[in-house]
């Protein structure tokens, strides 16, 4: 499992970024903006003309009943939606000023800049803990001491290092569910993205592990722009700065989390957050 051909050397910018990530300096975050974003599965219009900004170094939660299009919206941001055959996206996604769906943009670069954590913990089953985290950096030719350093840093950031540092060579699927999910978070941030997307990251976990993930999200936002999809309203209320409410593919309302949960503008939001439906 090595990438032998790559001749990619770090640019000064990358070195700077690496320094910033390693140290305590807060990196300047990046903004993601959706402009009139629509998404389809075959004929089904799953996301309908959404305009929404995700602020740098903030956690934005997307809530809504199942099937409301929140996961689809999330998958449009790093262009994973197009991996499903028969799907289509219209409108724009901007990372700072860069349109991610423009022809000049390489989809792999998009995904490297925007990491993703999935609903079910999905470490590569044949790989050790170390190799799971190393898989991403290895793709771009990182190896040797740099690689070990990167793996350690990612595992520390994911608050997993102390638990696994003595068994890095054991299989990743041997960990508990909560540890596996933190391993996946470590894997996602190992390629040093700017934005981290989380698709119901705690829905398959027990309450204690869920809390740890939420604490971790709070720590991670100092370095990343974070978007988290959840159907768990307590989680959204606890872990996010901004909350967006979706219904039937439409964005109903977005604003500061406290406002959405206490005095939302829209009556449908009010009914949803007070548990009257969904």
């Amino acid at each position: 499992m090595t990438v032998s051909l790559s001749t990619h050397a770090e640019t000064p910018l990358e070195q700077k970024r690496r320094f910033e990530h390693g140290g305590t300096t807060m990196a300047a975050g990046h903004r993601v903006s959706l402009k009139n974003l629509s998404a389809w599965y075959e004929d089904q219009h799953a996301v309908k003309g959404v305009d929404l900004d995700f602020e740098p170094n903030k956690v934005t939660a997307i809530i809504g009943p199942s099937g409301c299009g929140k996961s689809t919206l999330l998958r449009c941001i790093n262009r994973m939606h197009e991996e499903i055959p028969g799907t289509r996206v219209e409108g724009e996604v901007l990372l700072d000023d860069q349109a991610l769906y423009s022809d000049a943009v390489d989809v792999t670069a998009v995904r490297r800049a925007i990491g993703m954590v999935f609903q079910k913990p999905n470490p590569f089953p044949t790989m050790s803990i170390f190799d799971n985290v190393a898989a991403g950096p290895r793709l771009s030719g990182t190896k040797g001491g740099d690689l070990r350093e990167r793996v350690e840093r990612s595992l520390r950031s994911a608050a997993l290092w102390d638990e696994v540092k003595d068994r890095l060579n054991q299989p990743g699927i041997g960990l508990s569910g909560g540890q596996q999910q933190r391993l996946c978070i470590a894997r996602a941030i190992s390629v040093e993205p700017e934005v981290v997307l989380m698709d119901e990251p705690a829905s398959a976990l027990d309450p204690a592990s869920t809390l740890r993930i939420e604490e971790l999200v709070e720590e991670l936002k100092t370095r990343y722009t974070i978007v988290i999809v959840t159907h768990n309203m307590q989680q959204a209320a606890r872990a996010s700065d901004t909350t967006a409410f979706m219904l039937d593919g439409e964005l109903i309302e977005a604003g500061p989390t406290e406002k959405i949960f206490t005095k939302p503008d829209d009556e449908r939001t009010e009914r949803y957050v007070s548990g009257k439906f969904g």
Binding site: T7, H30, R112
Partner: peptide, 12 residues
């Protein structure tokens, strides 16, 4: 592409 999107190396 801007600096945020680091392009994939030619070799890859």
């Amino acid at each position: 592409m801007n600096a945020v999107l680091r392009p994939v190396s030619k070799a890859r």
